[in-house]
């Protein structure tokens, strides 16, 4: 999943979508995921990194992760031409 390139993410987790003028806030984990996605990391890789770094098992994280990606999609923050 690719985040639209012009989406701005601040260090504090503030997201501004210049296409629509909407803004969002993220908690720390969400901000970290978004930065990883922006830098082109694969989804499976992100899951591995998180399970290692945080006190969470892979299954739980995977579930939360895809729920979060669903929200990004809902808010139209991802590229549509995804295969």
């Amino acid at each position: 999943m690719k985040i639209k390139s012009n989406i701005a993410v601040s260090d504090n987790g503030f997201v501004f979508d210049p296409n629509t003028g909407d803004s969002y806030n993220l908690n720390n984990t969400a901000a970290e995921i978004l930065q990883m996605l922006k830098s082109g990391k694969e989804e499976t890789e992100i899951i591995k990194v998180f399970a290692k770094k945080y006190d969470v098992d892979e299954t739980t994280f995977e579930q939360n992760f895809y729920d979060f990606l669903g929200m990004l999609n809902h808010y139209n923050l991802v590229e549509e031409n995804r295969g």
Binding site: S10, N12, G13, F14, F16, S23, N25
Partner: peptide
């Protein structure tokens, strides 16, 4: 500016 809005929203 959006930066004001950001500051208010985040802090």
């Amino acid at each position: 500016d959006i930066s004001q809005f950001e500051k208010l929203s985040m802090t």
